[in-house]
């Protein structure tokens, strides 16, 4: 197994209230130092609620956002300079909202041509042949090429988004909530297409979602993010069946499942990012929290085998 993607202590801090000169008024740590390894051909699911930093992490990985510190390596090559064009041939991004990720004033052909011309210098018949090949791969009809984005349904637009990402012939795809804007019956079509493409093109996926069931269905491994930090990682079936971090357990218990009584009435909210707590960010909502948790930030450590959790008191099994 070779390593497709490796991040070392990758972190992002945003300045709040920038001034023309002088330091900003405050700083928010959107992503705490994250170290992740993703194997070639693997799907890593990234789970977390809104505001947990998963999109910030994803945008750093494709070079849309310069990291504050840390390193990104793709297939052994270091890419720390935030230059999407350099990243583009190795790693691509599929956006959450399929329609707003397509320029409303361009035809689908113009949208598809951009990465092929810019990143691979294709022209003329080679360009047309490649577009036809890509459209075939995502099961879209070639006559769609002359239309404009608003003429497509969400599912079709998301296929176009996937085709555009594949046009760069990347090794890794970052899928940022690729199906959360779609209806259930269409969601499965897109997920199955993604699984099929992955196998055929030997891709590596980072699948970001807030929907645990979807993540579980597509992922080999899962990383759970809370308040900008990875709190648990491990093989997909283990993480949700036997969660070690109390937050993962809360997530798993909150997912609506037919036949399970309504639970999770426990209140609690994310801490204020401008005024983070001293210890574990989850301590305020955690039934297992002790004084140690409110004092010291736990570090990610192996709990058992390949399952890691950042918790002072991991749930035993």
């Amino acid at each position: 197994m070779t390593l497709a993607l490796k991040t070392t202590e990758l972190a992002k801090t945003f300045d709040i209230g920038k001034r023309l000169i002088g330091p900003p008024r405050a700083q928010v740590r959107a992503v705490h130092p994250v170290s992740l390894d993703v194997q070639q051909g693997e799907t890593l699911g990234i789970v977390g609620e809104s505001g947990c930093g998963k999109s910030t992490l994803a945008r750093m990985l494709v070079g849309l956002l310069p990291p504050t510190s840390g390193r990104i390596e793709i297939e052994g090559r270091a890419l720390d300079r935030a230059d999407p064009a350099a990243f583009g041939r190795l790693i691509q991004y599929v956006f959450q909202d399929p329609v707003s990720s397509l320029n409303p004033r361009k035809t689908i052909r113009q949208i598809m041509e951009a990465p092929l011309r810019q990143l691979h210098g294709l022209r003329g018949p080679a360009l047309d042949a490649r577009i036809a090949e890509l459209f075939d791969a995502v099961n879209l009809r070639p006559e769609f090429l002359s239309r404009y984005p608003h003429e497509f349904s969400g599912g079709q637009a998301q296929r176009i988004g996937i085709a555009r990402a594949l046009a760069a012939s990347p090794r890794i795809l970052i899928l940022d909530e690729p199906v959360s804007a779609l209806d259930v019956s269409v969601q499965a079509q897109v997920l199955n297409l993604l699984a099929d493409l992955k196998q055929r093109m030997n891709l590596t996926y980072l699948f970001i979602s807030h929907d645990l069931a979807v993540v579980e269905a597509v992922s080999d491994r899962i990383a759970v993010l809370y308040f900008g930090a990875v709190v648990e990682t491990g093989p997909a079936q283990k993480v949700f069946a036997a969660p070690r971090h109390p937050y993962t357990k809360l997530l798993a218990d909150s997912a609506p499942v037919v036949g399970r009584p309504l639970g999770g009435a426990q209140s609690g909210e994310l801490p204020d990012p401008l005024n983070p707590p001293a210890g574990c960010a989850f301590a305020g909502r955690c039934p297992r929290a002790s004084d140690l948790c409110r004092r010291e930030i736990p570090v990610l450590g192996a709990v058992e085998g390949d399952q890691f959790a950042a918790c002072h008191h991991p749930i035993p099994h």
Binding site: R59, V62, G63, L64, P84, A85, F87, G88, R89, Q92, Y93, F95, S100, S101, L102, N103, A114, P115, Q118, L119, G161, R164, A165, A167, A168
Partner: peptide
Amino acid sequence: FIDAARLAG
């Protein structure tokens, strides 16, 4: 779509 264009090089 601006991000997408940047990623398209």
